[in-house]
Amino acid sequence: MINDHIIAGCVRQEPKAQYELYRALYPMMMAICTRYERDRQEAAATMNQGFLKILDNIGTRRKEVPVEPWARRIMINTVIDAHRRNKERKAMEGADIDDHAEGTSGINDYLKDMEAEAFAELLHRVPAMSRTVFNLYAIDGFSHAEIAGMLGLSEGTTKWHVSHARTVLRNAIAAEAMARTEKTVSR
């Protein structure tokens, strides 16, 4: 658990305290980064960059602010920065996704039964910008106005990206469900 002793040690740049904090925040940081980054190694690199920012700024954190939400926000900002840098490259990702079909009524039921990792894999089929906006809006709870400010888009565009991400995800889940059903029948 993160306690004041660890925080104070990080302020003093003690390696042991830094390690403790890293271990404590690792699941949260990794969860964020893998949502935004398709490649796991790339996600780890982004996570380390974010943790570096956390260490650099931990001395300026107000005490009344809980560490985890504060670190979470820094990590999201880091991911967004990385996203901006790699905007052009990411734009090509997920272009092969076919979003022709609207989701079926059983999508949500199937989603409930899905493995979490399988859903995370499906999330990466969404184009980069739409995935980023969907993550920010649906998972991290930012408003469209905030997202528009962060990414330099209009609110209308962010809404479109969210809608597009949902569509792609539903189609992907439907395709996944259909493939599984076919496999069961053939047995």
Binding site: R35, I107, A116, F119, R166
Partner: peptide
């Protein structure tokens, strides 16, 4: 759908 997605992603363990 969004809430379900959030819950599903929260289930992941690293």
């Amino acid at each position: 759908f969004d809430e379900l997605a959030r819950q599903k992603l929260a289930e992941r363990d690293f």
